[in-house]
């Protein structure tokens, strides 16, 4: 698993497309076009697959569950995704999550919860990923 993070509009998608020579939309599942968080991706018949918009999936979780439960569900997903990756040789899962954690503390409780859960969830995914890159205006920095 390769986790990609960085601020909004920093060129994360373009970097991933270029780095992994992504050819087809079938290799891509995005929260930005309202796809729900995929708990299981076993039916995906691809070698390289990209999940985009983790922060939106986490936001949806926080709308229904408390922080602990959100993190539990998130980690279940991570395990399922890793199982998919291991099922075939040369499989690579890429997860893109926008960094939303460095602004002023939000006024609204729901936005504070979203931000907290996103920070924890990114720690979890980084720990379980073999590689982590931060994208800064198109320039990548491999931090793991």
């Amino acid at each position: 698993m390769h986790f990609i993070t960085g601020g909004a509009f920093n060129g994360k998608r373009a970097w991933v497309k270029n780095r992994y020579k992504v050819q087809s939309d079938d290799q891509w599942l995005s929260a930005y076009v309202n796809n729900p968080l995929p708990l299981i991706i076993m039916e995906i018949d691809q070698d390289v697959f990209i999940l985009e918009g983790a922060e939106l999936w986490l936001r949806a979780l926080t709308e229904n569950y408390d922080a602990d439960k959100c993190r539990e569900i998130w980690n279940e997903c991570l395990e399922n995704w890793l199982t998919w990756e291991k099922e075939r040789q040369n499989r690579q899962l890429i997860v893109i999550g926008t960094d939303i954690t460095k602004g002023i503390v939000p006024m609204e409780a729901e936005n504070r919860l979203w931000r907290d859960v996103t920070g924890w969830a990114y720690q979890d995914i980084a720990a379980k990923s073999e590689k982590v890159d931060v994208i800064w205006y198109g320039v990548h920095q491999t931090i793991k």
Binding site: K102, N111, R115
Partner: peptide, 8 residues
């Protein structure tokens, strides 16, 4: 400025 690391 770095202002893009928060929800937009």
């Amino acid at each position: 400025n770095e202002v893009l690391n928060e929800p937009l």
